[in-house]
Amino acid sequence: MHISSQFDSGNIKVISADDASNIRLAINKDHQSDFYQWFHFKLHNNQRCEHVLTIENAGQSAYVEGWHDYQAVASYDREHWFRVPTEFDGQNLTIRFAPEYDAVYFAYFAPYSYERHQDLIHNAQLDIDCQLQILGQTLDGRDISLLKVGEEGADKKVIWLTARQHPGETMAEWFMEGFIDRLLDEDDGAARALLNKAVFYLVPNMNPDGSVRGHLRTNAAGVNLNREWADPSMENSPEVYLVREKMLATGVDMHLDIHGDEALPVNFVAGCEGIPSYDQRHRSLEDNFKAILLAITPEFQDVKGYEKDQPGQANLTLASNWVGEQFKCLAYTVEMPFKDNELLPDHSVGWSDNRSSLFGRDMLTAIYRIVDDLR
């Protein structure tokens, strides 16, 4: 029996693996950080018996509530991911699974590899409406890549989407893949109409270093990028610094920052009602956008979510709050579940890579419906 995580986004520590019925594991912390929750590893064993894998430090992870009613995902081919029986006793996360083949991968959510990220951005640049730009490099020397879709114009709205500030939230890049695929579809009427009215700036992966390292929440320096927007630096958070500089150069009429939430089993958005400049126009834009999403897809809801900030009490180190205040624009954090969408449960795959991608496609319709009101 062999257990390995020496690959892109891999993360696990083997305590002992002498017996298939008692495999003891632990999740490694993000580099220079106490955050941990993301795991991704391969089990290779030709025994067809039940394997009992216990992650013994789950009870001290970043979001312990995320383990309740959670099921891990597994795959034989790294393309099709399915849920496997998983239990949490308050300390140990235990996966019970009898493999049908010699090797099986386990992960916290369907991984989105750096290689697939490269395929996404380089295939997108082949479209006549798309330009691939490099804003600079991360601390590990990887490109901070931006897709510009459409042309600027005096009457054109400027719409930004950023994703995966927290690298373990891989559903965010699956979302972006679906969004980009639809936006570049020349046969899609909503996409064509949008590009007549807006130019898009898209960052599918804000944190490529953390993604490759197998981090949950931080970059190569152990910095949480979504707490850097008020005062980023090239030394600690070049990813935010360079994206923010580009935003200041282009202006922003709308911004969606795409994330995943460990605990809540629903899709929802978090607005910037606590920023100092929040007013009735801002509230109307937010309310209208949520109403549009509710009408478009049953995957979205507006009952469960984060507690709203009190007036003037927003944390301006968060992307959506900083952008909403800086540009006086519609700025939302979009959250998807690691578990399942309890409104439309799927016991086989839960909330998944494919459902995230479809939600991204739906989001384009919502933007189309509100684009005329953004400025």
Rank of each mutant, 00 (worst) to 15 (best):
V212Y: 00
G214K: 05
G214L: 08
H215D: 12
L216T: 15
N219S: 13
A221D: 14
G222Y: 07
V223K: 04
V223W: 00
V223E: 01
N226S: 10
R227A: 14
E228H: 03
E228K: 03
S233V: 04
S233G: 03
M234W: 12
E235S: 03
P238C: 08
E239G: 07
E239Q: 13
V240W: 04
L242V: 08
V243R: 00
R244F: 03
E245D: 04
K246F: 00
K246I: 00
L248T: 04
M254A: 15
M254Y: 08
M254P: 05
H259N: 12
G260W: 03
G260K: 04
A263Y: 02
A263T: 14
A263I: 08
F268L: 07
V269T: 07
G271W: 00
G274I: 14
I275D: 01
S277A: 15
Y278W: 14
Q280E: 14
R281E: 02
R281F: 02
R283M: 10
S284Q: 15
L285H: 09
L285W: 14
K290E: 13
I292F: 12
L293K: 01
I296M: 03
I296C: 02
P298K: 15
F300T: 01
G305I: 06
G305P: 02
E307C: 04
E307I: 05
D309R: 01
Q313R: 12
L318R: 02
V323F: 03
V323I: 15
G324S: 14
E325R: 04
E325W: 01
E325S: 07
E325N: 11
K328V: 10
K328I: 02
C329Q: 10
L330C: 11
Y332T: 00
T333Q: 10
V334Y: 14
V334A: 13
